[in-house]
Design a protein around this nucleic acid. Structure first.
Length: 275
DNA sequence: TCTCTTGTTGGATT
DNA sequence: AAATCCAACAAGAG
């Protein structure tokens, strides 16, 4: 599932392959992927050049010539491929961007949950979803004290708080479970029960873990691949996600799986204490 | 064949 | 306002 490290890996791959390319023609085979009028979407993209590719949280942002930006969210299983126009269309490819020179950028999404939309570049951070995002999880923009103060006002479970994207951007179900295990924090702990020391610890692990996972090219659990169709390797560094019934690497207790905020949640019942 | 599970976001409901 | 629930989908497991 593409969380921040996977989206960043996709972004870097796309940057290598389609930066500077000009879009000749766009076809929406499954138009519901597009927010707004699909005809207008395809029409507006013609003759635009891809000037840069950005990421904010789990959103990809293609900045195009003529002050237009394409915002794309992969949700569960969205993928981008770059193929020759002559290559047979793969199953579940929904949007095809034909590029000058005979290549195509293809958006593929088994679950059809992903979304994309066009906005003026000046408004790229103002779209709903991006506007409410918390800081990027880097030491430069993610402040530990602010994080602690923010947590202090929330009564919901820390796991749920980490997923809501307003405290910090980019964590999804896998990395949320992982950073809580690393921090010895039980996922159901009300966010406001964390003391400053625990919040700082969690903050540090969030930055470290996402950086480490990005370096590994992300985590491939089911089907994730980057734009080169390469698998990530961080699944070998996971401690709790998908480890139900396996011994905890720290204390040997059996990893449990429960539901927190309607999400599958993995934790060690012994070394992640409830507070 | 049917049911359950998978995860992200946004909108509706409480 | 904040917390909670569900829909948007497809596929694989049992």
């Amino acid at each position: 599932m593409p969380e921040l490290p996977e989206v960043e890996t996709v972004r870097r791959g796309l940057e290598k392959m389609v930066l500077g390319a000009t879009i000749e023609h766009v076809e929406a085979l499954y138009p519901k992927i597009i927010n707004g009028d699909p005809k207008k979407f395809c029409c507006l993209l013609k003759e635009r050049r891809i000037l840069s590719i950005d990421r904010r949280g789990k959103y990809l942002i293609f900045n195009l010539s003529g002050e237009l930006s394409l915002i794309s969210h992969l949700r569960m299983e969205g993928k981008y491929f770059v193929k020759l126009s002559s290559d047979p269309l793969e199953k579940h490819t929904h949007i095809v961007f034909s590029l000058q020179g005979g290549r195509q950028l293809r958006y593929n999404d088994v679950r059809k949950f992903g979304r994309m939309e066009l906005v003026p570049t000046s408004h790229k951070y103002e779209v709903p979803g991006i506007k409410k995002l918390g800081p990027e999880p880097t030491s430069a923009s993610f402040d530990a004290v602010a994080f602690y103060q923010h947590l202090n006002k929330k009564k919901k479970a820390i796991k749920t708080a980490l997923l809501d994207q307003t405290l910090v951007a980019g964590l999804g179900n896998i990395y949320a479970d992982e950073v809580l295990w690393l921090s010895h924090i039980h996922p159901e702990t009300p966010a406001c029960h964390l003391d400053k020391e625990e919040a700082v610890q969690l903050h540090d692990y969030i930055i470290m873990e996402l950086a480490k996972a990005t370096k590994a090219g992300g985590t491939t659990i089911r089907t994730y691949t980057d734009a080169f169709q390469h698998l990530g390797s961080f699944q070998f560094d996971l401690h709790v996600y998908g480890k139900k019934g396996k011994p905890c690497e720290r204390c040997g207790a059996s990893i449990e799986k429960i539901v927190v905020g309607q999400r599958g949640t993995h934790f060690c019942p012994v070394c992640q204490k409830v507070k």
